[in-house]
Design a protein around this nucleic acid. Structure first.
Lengths: 345, 345
DNA sequence: CTGAAAGCGCTTACAG
DNA sequence: CTGAAAGCGCTTACAG
């Protein structure tokens, strides 16, 4: 079964709807209907005709051209995954997991997510949205006001995953306060009194940064303990300060898994052991948190659920663009591993 | 500047080429030429007309519709990144880095890579290629014979990155033998005599698996030492065997960074230290090899160069599909870190 | 220098 | 039940 015909130059070429129609001796509409068979549709073709057409479709190896369909359907069938990763061209860390599940979900609809990395100069992004090549956008993480403006101006259906955006957008968010509370409760119930919070060298411009730090302080106060101001700076400085501290802390909450992994290494360099000398807990239950020394206790983001809700809402909005904005807030889950233990007596 | 007009139902709608033409009072061809301005083109419009058109284009916020262009140009302007990752829906590890650079390269041409995860049932893949939505494919890693067959049957320009495929394909490969030699030379020159090779629990079906193991054995023999058979199995078994071995090895080559990271943890669990008790070297200089305890010595794949060559060759093949297949083989680079040291005296 | 026309490959009301 | 026609929004020979 050779899918291709030859044109006058002898170059292989795909059979078109018209080719099939000609061969069967029916109209293009008939072929179109036979191929996109919808039983409920009012206008139909005779079963026998349909079979005859399908037979030839198979023989010729005809497949509807996506290019033709895109124009006729006013749909590109393409969805963009939009992000402006500070680290690289492809989403990393938790976003990686989310993207993983987004791909999984979209594949059920034969949609292949296209990756759109918005760099400093967002004029390219405007161009991409402006030419209507995407039916909708899923965005990851924090977006600059400029990117949001472009998104709005282009009137493309969008769902923002884990962004700092107001309620006029459809969003999937995570309850960071609750997640932080779970982490703190865990540490406090282990008996830790001197808990510190490490924000890292370059806290990203994300509400999680504020929420996690604030909740840490809040929890300490609620427990009748005195919170330290969140540490901002290189991990080595943090560790030095930690060690030389008169009332040495016994537990550390790190802003995210990137930081926590580096923290483990920095502590190791100083000959400190986790959890013997310090307990360490963090956020984002993503590689390599289970593979490091020791495996890390984390608050896990519900990546799969986030992806599912985001895709569901986006497809809905593409179908009905006037759907009012919605926000979904999901819970984090505490995963206890070996990096946390009661403080040494 | 509002980009949108309203149609009879009052719903915002994009201005089309025809709208602009009408407004300016010229033909659609004139507008098309003004927008896609190519100075060298034979047939041209008067500079003054062009300016007049461009003015209105700007006023109306007109942008050529990708959908129209796709059909007229016989190009979708979309490229697929194809892989059948065993682990998840998005490429990980080294492929992650490669994808990162692919995105970077393609973005220069306003192409957004679409991710196509080929699952067990590759009939979806056939469908995707069959409807001509992609101008070309970049594939990552090993592909099943079935996937290769689909790729060939659909006559889509493709470049295979790091695949096990014959020379009838255009490929970007890596000189794994040379990389393994560099690793071995490094260990041997440190004075190691008893070097073992860990293939991991589930060696992926990749030629690297064979090449690295074979080269390890070859290098040992060349140095007048006796190679061990490559170990295949869970890392814990490997470590047990290692420790209980009468002539205890002093250095380990691990098949890849996933394995090496797990190996460090397994050794730590047994109270062994790296590099004091064992030196460890591996392949793929990718996260988290620099963040683990201790940072790993690796043979680094030239991810950036691989991506650049692959994209370059693919765009060339899309332009000229008859270009004969080419193969590019790139070198790995040894990166020495703290996981390797001379054996303890 | 400019415009009318055909064509890219479909879909979908509509007329018969 | 079936086909002719218009249309989706462009581009590009070609005629003037």
């Amino acid at each position: 079964m050779n899918r291709f015909m030859e044109n006058s130059q002898g170059v292989a070429t795909r059979p078109t709807l018209a080719d099939v129609a000609r061969r069967v001796g029916v109209s293009k509409s008939a072929v179109s209907q036979a191929v996109n068979w919808v039983p409920e549709r009012a206008t139909t073709i005779k079963e026998e005709t349909r079979q005859r057409i399908l037979q030839v479709v198979k023989e010729m190896g005809y497949r509807p051209s996506w290019r033709g369909q895109v124009l006729a359907n006013r749909r590109s069938g393409a969805i963009a995954v939009v992000y402006s990763a500070p680290l690289g061209a492809v989403p990393r860390g938790v976003y990686f997991e989310i993207v993983d599940h987004i791909e999984e979900q979209l594949s059920k609809f034969d949609i292949c997510p296209a990756f759109v990395h918005v760099k400093d100069h967002s004029e390219r992004f405007d161009r991409l949205l402006g030419d209507a090549r995407f039916d909708g956008c899923l965005t990851l993480g924090v977006l600059s006001p400029e990117v949001l403006k472009i998104l709005r101006r282009n009137q493309v259906p969008a769902v923002l995953v884990n962004a700092d955006a107001d309620h006029t957008w459809t969003r999937v968010n995570v309850d960071d306060e609750e997640g932080t509370r779970a982490v703190m409760q865990h540490l406090l119930s282990l008996g830790h009194k001197r808990v510190v919070y490490n924000a890292g060298a370059h806290p990203p411009p994300h509400h999680s940064v504020t929420v996690r730090a604030a909740t840490y302080q809040q929890c300490m106060r609620e427990a009748g303990l005195s919170p330290q101001p969140p540490f901002v700076g290189p991990v080595d400085h943090f560790v030095e300060q930690l060690i030389s501290s008169p009332d040495r802390p016994t537990a550390i909450v790190d802003f995210d898994h990137w930081g926590a992994v580096r923290l483990l290494q920095a502590l190791w360099r100083k000959g400190k052991r986790v959890p013997d000398d310090f307990s360490v807990a963090t956020f984002n239950d993503t590689y390599p948190v289970t593979e490091v020394i020791p495996p890390l206790t984390t608050a896990s983001l519900p990546a799969k659920q986030m992806a599912e809700e985001a895709v569901r809402m986006l497809l809905e909005r593409i179908e009905r663009p006037q759907t009012p904005p919605q926000t979904i807030v999901l819970k984090e889950t505490l995963v206890v591993r070996e990096s946390t233990a009661p403080p040494r007596a």
